[in-house]
Design a protein around this nucleic acid. Structure first.
Lengths: 295, 295
DNA sequence: TCACTGTTTTCCAAATTCGAAAAAGCCATT
DNA sequence: AATGGCTTTTTCGAATTTGGAAAACAGTGA
């Protein structure tokens, strides 16, 4: 028998001075009412109610118990109501983690709009180029631009981006031409440490696949800094378009191997597997889906 | 699943940051631990813990819930402890009811001794010549000198007393002699209203039984006042020896029909049927048994 | 004594609970 | 990549518990 139910039933019986009225009130059978009170008495090894078939009065222990239990039940109801409110409204703090560049270029511009939509939701965003452990560090939501490790996390695709090769015009002028993927092997390359295999670049043209093992002249966990290195003529870059676009537009970098169809990279939203996804997470999921897919 | 158990398990899991350590601590299986927390989450329709197989952290709702529930559980434990103390020690108030004369003559003399034995137990004694409803009026214990009505009450025999016939010497001198029970029918009698059948007197001699329907000149619910009426020569009295003894010793009343073996009357302790008899009631039961039987 | 109301007990089918073991997942090490 | 240790979750069948209908029982008033 559920102890908390037993307490509630006991209180109802006391308040109505009757098992049958309490049962009616609580919408349970009279038999259950009787059994629950008995189970409570058994658990406490005490009679709480003096009773015959016509009357009910509290024993001294019962009086004390009732007196103490009523505020406890009220408090319990308050606690439940508080949690209920937390789950049905979009409030509190949403803790996220995402790669620095992705956050800076794609997410931050959306934040003002988000805050207007959900003014009561605090955001706690960690910008970090590493794979944080969502569970260990208490993140509600993570944003990943990479191959996902196997994990108990739930992953939702957020968008796809194209990987492009590029280098600075000056670098290209001073080094051998790059016409095929294999030509890359002769060049110093700028590699991204969070890729599954940083030095293995993977290009596609029609049905044709090329896997090139490049020489890493510089490896970083931050794509923007890699691009800046490329601008300083340090080597060939292989990064998603949302990083490169600024540099290509300004002419600081020049695309190469443009006839090779760029491989797609997926961005993912990941969150700890849960049956009961909090509203705040759902809100962010929906918001990002809407605002990033039609970008 | 017991909700209160679920709360305790949830708190233990939080405190140990581990289902298995919590299970060990609480001496339950790991499976049960997992299921209890799940049932709690289901009841609240919220995830309380982010978890994978290696780590556990609280969600925002879980944090709040844990924070609120810990003091609640403590309070619950206090309440239980308080009741536990009430049932294992002899304290509080014992509410009794008993007939006025019986109380005055037989019980009151024992009270000082009782209070010395159980100094922490308050006594609330109602002296009343009526059959109080123990349940309705919240008595822990009743003392009855009469035939018991059928009832759900538990009755324990406390002692036996002899019914005697008596009248004042002056009355006897002025009225016809009383040699057989049937002679009583010609006399005005003093009857006790709380007897099952006040006007039917029942005397015994060996195997011989006599049931006499007497004429009631005065009927009261108090034996002592009846005896005083007899002293004023109002009629013949039929009362237990503990009432009569004072009057017989002083010579104010004279016994009659002495060859008729006096019928026994029983005194009973009665209390509401209960599985869990409070210590205070047990104490009084034991005390009266000891001090009244060797009287 | 009977009728009526209210509580407890009994009975039994249905639902739930329980633990052991298997499965699944994570992580560090090799 | 594979291994092994550690943890949580799921599965599954046996055992227990639950819950409601009805019977039994008690007190009350007619």
């Amino acid at each position: 028998m559920d102890r908390l139910d037993a307490l509630r039933v006991f209180c109802a019986v006391v308040e109505h001075s009757s098992f049958s009225r309490a049962a009616t009130e609580l919408n349970i059978s009279v038999a259950k009412t009787s059994k629950l009170v008995q189970s409570l008495e058994q658990a406490l090894n005490t009679s709480l109610l003096r009773r015959n078939t016509r009357r009910i009065t509290l024993t001294e222990a019962g009086e004390r118990y009732y007196h103490d239990v009523v505020p406890l039940l009220e408090e319990m109801a308050n606690i439940d109501a508080r949690v209920e409110r937390m789950t049905t409204t979009i409030t509190g703090t949403l803790r996220m983690t995402m790669p620095l560049d992705f956050g800076r270029r794609l997410i931050m511009p959306l934040i003002p709009d988000f805050k207007l939509t959900y003014p009561d939701l605090e955001l706690d965003i960690e910008l970090s180029d590493r794979h944080a452990d969502l569970v260990a560090e208490g993140f509600d939501l993570g944003l990943r631009v990479a191959n996902l490790k196997d994990s108990s996390l739930i992953a939702k695709p957020l968008g796809t981006y194209r990987m492009k090769c590029a280098a600075s015009p000056e670098y290209l002028a001073r080094h051998p031409a790059i016409n095929t993927p294999e030509d890359l092997e002769a060049h110093p390359c700028l590699t991204y440490s969070l890729s599954a295999q940083p030095s293995n670049w993977h290009l596609i043209r029609g049905e044709e696949e090329a896997r090139v093992r490049v020489r890493s002249a510089l490896q970083l966990n931050n794509g923007d800094l890699l691009a800046q290195a490329a601008c300083q003529h340090l080597g060939v870059l292989y990064q998603p378009d949302f990083i490169l676009s600024t540099y290509l537009d300004s002419g600081a970098l020049t695309p190469i191997l443009t006839d090779w169809q760029d491989r797609m990279v997926h961005a993912w939203l990941v969150y700890p597997a849960r049956k009961y996804l909090p509203m705040k997470v759902q809100a962010m999921l929906g918001f990002l889906k809407n605002h990033l897919s039609d970008q």
